[in-house]
Structures are given as C-alpha cells and as structure tokens.
Amino acid sequence: MNDKQKGLLPAIENLFPCAEHRFCVRNIHENFKASFRGKLYKDLLYKCAYATTIPKFETTMDELKAFNQDAHLWFPTFILNTGLRHTSLIVKGRDMPIISALEYIREYLMRRIVNVLEVIDKSEGTNAAHYTVQWNGGDLYQVSGRPGKQRVVNLVKRTCTCRRWELKGIPCEHVVAAIWYEALNGEKVGAVESWVHPVHRMDTWTQVCSFKINPINGKPLWPKSQVPTPLTHPKHNKQVGRPKKARKRSTFELEDLTQCGKLSKKETKGACSKCGSTRHNIRTCKQAR
C-alpha cells in the first residue's frame, strides 16, 4: 500500500500517535520523475533528502528553483525528514508458503545474530576528529574547521547546529572535538561512546542479540494442536506461470532498462560460463581449461 491510498496517514497517526512517520525517497522519486526526468533532477532530490539543517535544505531548494521553477513547485517539503531505504533480505522466501517463509526468516535471524556477535567481539571503539574549539565560558562551544564552517555545540542539552547528533544519535565531528577539548582542560567527560544515544551503544547491541533464535525439530515431531475446531486451508487459486520473487518495477524503471528495443544488462549479474562464479567472467577465470 502506498501514500496514494486515502486515509493511510490518518490511520497511522491514530494507531501509533507517538511513532515518527517518514517517507521513502525512492517512491517520491518515482512520482517526481513522472514529470521531471534526468540525473540532475534526481541528484537535487536526494540532496534535499539528505539535508540535516533547514538552511541547507532551503539552499538546495533554491538550486532546484533556479534549475526549474515548475519542479520547485511540485517538490514536497516533507521530504526534509525522509531518508529511508528498503531492503531485499527475504527475497528468497517471498514465494514460499507461510510456514516455509517463517522458517526461512528464523534461520536467517539465527545466522545474523551470530554474525553480529562476531562483529561485536572485534569492535574496539571510535576515533576522534580534531577541530579548533572555542569555549564561551558556559555550556556552548564554537567548533571551527574550514573558514565559515563553524558550528555551535551544547554538551549539556546534547545539540549541535549541524543537527546530525540529534538526527542520528551519534556525535558528529564537532561534538567529538568539543568533548576532547573538555578532556584536555581537565574535565571528566568519560568515554566518547557514553555520548552516543543508548540505541547505538555496544551494550544495547549486545542486549538485543542476547535473545537467541532456538533451533526446532522437523514437522513430524511437532506437537499436535489441541484446538477442537480444525483450521482449514484458505482457498487458493494457482496463478499461471512461475511465482514472482522480485518486486514489480515501475514503467519508468522498465523504460530505463530498455535501450533501442533491447533489454539492457544494467543492474544484472553476469556469471562465468566456465565455473559459474558471479565475481568474474570467462576471460579472467583462473580454473584450468
């Protein structure tokens, strides 16, 4: 379901009043390029989406207005808070029955937790960047890098005028410079990781992955249900052809993939005809002929 369905936004606000609602930039771009196509339009769109401050967002909007005023009028202002991305980690299980799909997800989570724990064991910490810092005698610090690029940091309220600290929860280079400035002047600031939002801390990451996904027996060993009413299978009409795994591409994406009436090889993975690997082709294959 997309944002064109009337009533979706009010329903989300009613059911989840405290949840933050964001928009997918890729979907916005799909609607945007219906009227304005080209790489320059796309670059300006994503530049607006990645803006962390209102002045930077307005500067990018002025660039779009100078480039095309009609595109500027179409452009939605709510994209300032967007920046989501979609994932395709469960593409292999999309065409499976519900039980098989859940089993695929469970096994994937088991492998993922193990991989995350290995990364945690190898993690040691972060490095601080050094900027020129000036203290105002109170809670504020002026952090300067390049000329005219200084930012104001408030370590008490945990804010920075670049807004990356508030948006991501991770101290930006300006905040790290202010923290090290306090440390060099004898203040007890603790570890840099203590200034990170708890959701990004190593102990929180470890706690999330502490809940293991347990293996289970095969279907013949599953306990019998004690529900007196049997659950019948839903009526299913088998469609013609092989079930689709990949998402449906829009008309504009299909047009971009075709050139001169032939299907383009863009975004496709080729394989070596000798060994079948997707990392090289037959010309660079090192296996014996």
Rank of each mutant, 00 (worst) to 15 (best):
D70T: 02
L40S: 10
F57G: 00
I54H: 10
K65C: 08
I28D: 07
G38F: 02
P76R: 12
A34V: 07
T77H: 06
L40W: 06
F78S: 01
T53L: 11
F78Q: 03
C48Q: 14
L64F: 11
D43S: 07
K47I: 02
C24K: 11
A51Q: 01
V25R: 00
T82R: 07
H72F: 09
D62G: 04
A34H: 13
N68E: 04
F78L: 04
Y46C: 05
I79G: 00
P76E: 10
F75A: 00
F67I: 01
T59E: 01
L84D: 07
E30S: 05
Q69E: 14
L64I: 13
A66K: 09
E63S: 06
E30N: 03
L64V: 14
K47T: 15
H29C: 13
M61Q: 10
D43K: 09
F75Y: 13
K47H: 07
P55W: 12
K47P: 01
W74H: 02
E63Q: 07
A51D: 01
Y46Q: 06
F78I: 04
F23C: 08
I28S: 01
A71W: 06
I28L: 09
T59N: 04
K65R: 14
L73M: 10
A71V: 08
E30W: 04
L44S: 03
C48S: 14
F23V: 13
P55G: 09
L44T: 02
F78W: 10
K65M: 03
A49K: 09
L44A: 09
V25C: 05
I54P: 04
Y50F: 11
P76V: 08
C24T: 03
K56Y: 02
R37Y: 07
R22N: 12
L40Y: 12
T82V: 14
Q69A: 11
Y50A: 12
L44V: 09
P55M: 13
A71I: 15
I28P: 04
T60E: 04
Y41C: 14
A71T: 02
T52S: 05
Y41S: 15
S35Q: 13
W74R: 15
I28R: 00
I28G: 03
D62F: 10
T59S: 09
A34I: 03
S35H: 14
A34K: 08
G83L: 01
G38V: 09
L73F: 03
G38M: 04
L45K: 05
G38E: 02
Y50E: 07
R37F: 05
M61C: 11
T53H: 15
T53N: 08
T77V: 13
P55H: 13
F36E: 08
L40P: 05
L44R: 05
T52R: 03
K56E: 15
C48G: 11
T52W: 01
W74G: 02
T77Q: 07
L84Y: 10
E58Q: 11
R37L: 08
Y41N: 09
R26T: 15
K39M: 06
F23A: 12
T77M: 10
W74V: 04
L84V: 13
A34N: 06
D62W: 06
E63C: 06
K47Q: 14
K33P: 01
K39I: 03
E63T: 03
T59A: 10
P76G: 15
T52L: 04
K39F: 08
N27Y: 02
M61F: 08
Y41L: 12
E58K: 14
I54R: 12
W74M: 13
K42S: 15
L73E: 09
K33N: 15
